[in-house]
């Protein structure tokens, strides 16, 4: 085995996929498990989620989102298709670049949502920053809907990523 360009590209792809598993795994945990379970939990037990589990999950969630994007952009540059993919393949009419490009843009939108909408609003909703009683449910709703948008986008995003590798 040689530590050549192929090996380093593989290493970055592995780190990209590892980070992505943690990110989307936690995203699906929030949407498929935690949020639907909250109404079934007695009020006196809810702080276990809102004060302990959710803040810990959100920590790994936002940092794995960032590392997925950083490793992904490095990988695209190492593979030589960063600008073609970000142009959605419109500059060279290559389906592989179009597919990976759609995935990259959806990933970038999802990471923006995590850092600039979900996380700031979750801090308000979970009481990690002081807000009025009026503002708290609004922040929770904003975080919840944006998290659902990311869950929706994860479906075509993963199709784009996997199809770019295997179909095109």
């Amino acid at each position: 085995m040689e530590f050549d360009h192929t090996w380093w590209t593989f290493l970055i792809r592995w780190l990209h996929v590892l980070s992505g598993f943690m990110w989307v795994g936690l995203l699906w945990y929030f949407n498929f498990v935690q949020t639907p379970s909250m109404p079934k939990i007695p009020d006196e037990q809810k702080p276990a989620i809102s004060k302990v589990i959710a803040p810990a999950a959100l920590f790994w969630f936002r940092w794995s989102a960032l590392s997925t994007i950083v490793f992904g952009l490095i990988l695209a540059q190492m593979n030589g298709y960063l600008t073609e993919a970000l142009s959605l393949g419109l500059t060279d009419n290559v389906a592989k670049h179009s597919a990976i490009g759609f995935g990259m843009w959806m990933g970038l939108i999802m990471m923006f949502n995590v850092w600039f909408i979900i996380w700031p609003n979750q801090k308000k909703a979970l009481g990690m920053v002081e807000v009025s009683d009026e503002e708290r449910p609004k922040a929770a709703r904003r975080a919840g809907v944006t998290s659902r948008i990311n869950t929706m986008l994860s479906i075509p995003m993963l199709y784009a990523m996997v199809s770019a590798q295997n179909l095109y």
């Binding site: 639907p36 959605l88 095109y168």
Partner: peptide
């Protein structure tokens, strides 16, 4: 009604976007 209010609506919306995206990819790569 917002389709994102339910998990099934969220998944169906994701699948619809996937189909639209595949059509666009094939059109661009043709």
């Amino acid at each position: 009604m917002n389709p994102l209010d339910s998990l099934s609506g969220t998944i169906i919306s994701g699948l619809v976007i996937t189909v639209i995206m595949v059509v666009l990819i094939n059109a661009i790569g043709a």
